[in-house]
Design a binder for these strands. Sequence first.
DNA 1: CGCGTTGTCAACCGTGCGGTTAAATAAAGA
DNA 2: TCTTTATTTAACCGCACGGTTGACAACGCG
Lengths: 115, 115
Amino acid sequence: MQTDLLSAQFAALADPTRRAILARLSEGEASVNELAEPFDISLPAVSKHLKVLEKAGLISRGREAQWRPARLEPMALKGIAEWMEHYRRFWDASFDRLDAYLKKIQQGDDRGPRN
Amino acid sequence: MQTDLLSAQFAALADPTRRAILARLSEGEASVNELAEPFDISLPAVSKHLKVLEKAGLISRGREAQWRPARLEPMALKGIAEWMEHYRRFWDASFDRLDAYLKKIQQGDDRGPRN
DNA sequence: CGCGTTGTCAACCGTGCGGTTAAATAAAGA
DNA sequence: TCTTTATTTAACCGCACGGTTGACAACGCG
């Protein structure tokens, strides 16, 4: 079993069905039936996907009568974004320039009042 | 089997050992033995991890005599970054106002027709 | 209450993953 | 050539994953 949250999040995102579910939820919360509609899989399968997403902290669920609407958990992807930031310089050209600039500043004067 | 590159990349990143390997490679290329050293797993296991990373396009491998150094593939993470960009407004503070606006909209027209 | 709707739980199945050990391959060096 | 070093391949193992079907629970409504 996966104890590490970041691993759980990456693993959750590795499935195309789950990414599609997230895309749908980015337009607003939805019931399980609504989420299942575009796919050719059974309802329990969708229910399992939602459980995976929930354990990864990517969604949360409510209750309204017999519906259990799922909604995107807004801050969840921030952890991944922060992990990626460490590698940003490898693919983002504009970051290279900023990086160089920051290093240059840092060399001479650490606590300068930048306004 | 996974044919989708994005899925393969997320799956590759879901393993902590592989993320540690990437972190090591972000400081420069390394041989399999060097990469294996911090871990308590066998060499073939590391070799398999490298193959997963390579198939995901995250690293590439060379040959120098009997060594097969691995190096980070610079542009690889860009695909993931672009996927995440779609969700940026959900966690980035500078989009807070937009987010609040979307939530407000969402309240009104949630579950209309259909089931 | 009984009924229909919505969703989950339980059990099962096939496949792939991360790990192992043992053997094979590749290249440098004596 | 024979040996040493570096790495991959092959075969296997246990387990988690994504899927199924069938039964069950929760709730609104007549």
